[in-house]
């Protein structure tokens, strides 16, 4: 049996070596450089999320933390069919992702492989709208689609065709989502396709693969990281979108972000809004973490 003094000493040695190890880690330039950003995210991202989780466990219509935690809000979400807005958001997000992948893949392929230096100009032109507030752009669609607007007004006065406006319907919301999130699918997919070396596709073709086989066996799997990021980004952003359904959808359907906003504002029911947010966060978070776990960002962004 070791003497108490020796034991104490060995413990001290152990803790001091651990301390040295920690000091060595903390003084690495990478750790130091990451600290400011991490602190910002700690107080501006993690803390608010914890507050939301906290509120979600408070009784309905309370405005502070001084109550016994309860699951009442989550029960009422199920009972009062809030899940419908979840389903709508989920369904519309899925449709948006599928449509955008079909729309963006050929363009992304052209920009990554065919257009040469024209691709830079195209990129610039497609980035510009991103910097215009999305509600202005959606308002532009309202002007285009509304009765007596650009489309229907032109049809009526120039061709004498009268038609009903598609505004304030589900297709209008999908149009808005596709429109707003197009760059978010396009650019990651483009990045993914540009990661496929030309040699490799040529080699596959030379080895007797048809165009379709090259696409399925070579291009698609190698571009998959970019496609996954694009799809996930679009899905997650559509899932939490607010402006599209409000501005283009009227009250045609209510998406989850609508419900959350209403609970906080008109409803004055912070705990309910928080509970809805927690569910959305769980859904989004688990998906994001699942996809991110499978990706190596260094490879995608081009570390040498």
């Amino acid at each position: 049996m070791a003497s108490p003094a020796a034991e104490l000493e060995s413990r001290a040695v152990e803790s001091s070596s651990r301390w040295a190890e920690f000091r060595a880690w903390i003084t690495q330039p990478g750790v130091l450089c990451s600290t400011p950003v991490l602190l910002l995210l700690l107080i501006g991202f993690l803390a608010p999320l914890l507050v939301v989780v906290g509120y979600s466990l408070m009784p309905p219509r309370t405005f502070d933390f001084g109550h016994v935690p309860t699951l009442e809000n989550f029960i009422s979400i199920v009972n009062e069919s809030y899940y419908r807005s979840f389903l709508w958001a989920f369904g519309l997000a899925c449709i948006t992702v599928v449509l955008l992948l079909i729309i963006c893949y050929p363009l992304a392929y052209g920009m990554a492989k065919l257009f040469g230096h024209w691709a830079h100009l195209l990129t610039l032109l497609l980035v510009i709208p991103l910097f215009v507030s999305e509600n202005i752009r959606l308002f532009g669609w309202v002007l285009f689609l509304i009765k007596r607007g650009v489309l229907l007004g032109a049809l009526e006065s120039w061709f004498g065709i009268g038609a009903d406006s598609m505004l304030y319907s589900v297709p209008a919301i999908v149009l808005g989502l596709v429109y707003v999130y197009l760059p978010f699918t396009l650019f990651p997919v483009m990045l993914g396709i540009s990661m496929v070396p030309r040699d490799v596709t040529e080699a596959a073709r030379d080895l007797g693969a048809s165009r379709w086989q090259v696409f399925r066996e070579i291009e698609l799997p190698l571009a998959m990281p970019g496609i996954l990021i694009g799809a996930m980004l679009t899905f997650v952003l559509s899932l939490g979108s607010l402006a599209e359904s409000k501005i283009l959808g009227g009250q045609a359907v209510i998406m989850i972000a609508d419900d959350i906003e209403t609970a906080f504002t008109f409803g004055q029911n912070w705990p309910l809004g928080s509970a809805l947010s927690v569910l959305l966060i769980l859904l989004v978070g688990s998906l994001v973490l699942y996809v991110l776990r499978r990706l190596d960002l260094d490879e995608i962004l081009g570390r040498r």
């Binding site: 995210l41 501006g44 991202f45 608010p48 999320l49 507050v51 939301v52 509120y55 996930m232 980004l233 997650v236 952003l237 899932l239 939490g240 979108s241 607010l242 972000a257 959350i260 906003e261 906080f264 912070w270 809004g273 928080s274 947010s277 959305l280 966060i281 989004v284 978070g285 994001v288 991110l292 960002l297």
Partner: peptide, 17 residues
């Protein structure tokens, strides 16, 4: 990447709370 992938409206509300 997490904040980028996060619904902004929900983030805004969380910050408000």
């Amino acid at each position: 990447l997490l904040p980028i992938f996060f619904p902004q409206a929900v983030l805004g509300l969380a910050l408000l709370l």
